[in-house]
Amino acid sequence: MDQLVTTLFNGLSLSSIYLLVALGLSITFGQMGVINMAHGEFVMLGAYTTFCTQELFANFLPEQVGSIYYFAAIVLAFFVTFALGCLLEKLLISKLYGRKIDSLLATWGVSLILQQAVRTIFGAQGVNVNAPSFLKGGLAVKGVTFSYNRIFIIILVAFCLVMVWLLVNRSRYGSRMRATMQNRPMAQCMGINTKKIDCITFGIGSGLAGIAGCSVALLGSVDSTVGQNYIVYSFMTVVLGGAGNLFGTVIGAAIIGFSSIFVENYQSASIARAIVLLIIIIFLQFKPSGLFTVRSRVLDEGV
């Protein structure tokens, strides 16, 4: 029983991490159709922002406020990566709309540049992010320990998910965004500044990656390659769920996260990875466009 609860919690936790990384991608890749290979590097930059905030707080502020640094880091990470995302969109991606392979290569180049830049500034060994004191340790309930980190990440993901849903489906900006993505010329005719929409949308997707960076910094190492560890899984999550569908991304993350943990309980980590990939391949044989598909003119045209 304990074993089962632990497994379920681990699965939920892993799914939530994949979901958080994939959430930004579901916007930039799912909605906008940009294959952004630098998405993982935005995650990495979010993690480094967390580190910088931690150091700033430790050096310039009294100790009592020390552990609230983490909340400041989340906000800062969002804005730093949001700004960089907007910049990347303006300088590079906006020139490459409709040229998927080119944007794939260009953003891959950007990812290498960002990795080397971070390595030059911070060193390749990786930096040390300490969990804030209120997230240290775990809650023990009848022999099962639920770590505060992971509980916090699950709550953070739920919060981000609700915010994204509200933004896309309930806000004025969201309807403009959907209009732009579904039928650009018509949206332009209606007086929507689609270039601005593109830029901000890409920024939001990148900003979400920054928030994901804050949470992965709690769980593992913060070094220049940390984003690479998540990028493949997050693309798989979005593809499995069906590009452009938020609910699909949630289900995609859950399938990948839970199946990884369940398989790994009985097999080695490498086999678990292979089996999860196999599940995805088989799945996509029957549902080539993912679990949930959005019908829109853009997809019909195959742009």
Partner: peptide
């Protein structure tokens, strides 16, 4: 490249 050790820790 493993980042999640939850399953190994439960083993």
């Amino acid at each position: 490249e493993q980042t999640d050790f939850a399953a190994i820790i439960s083993k």
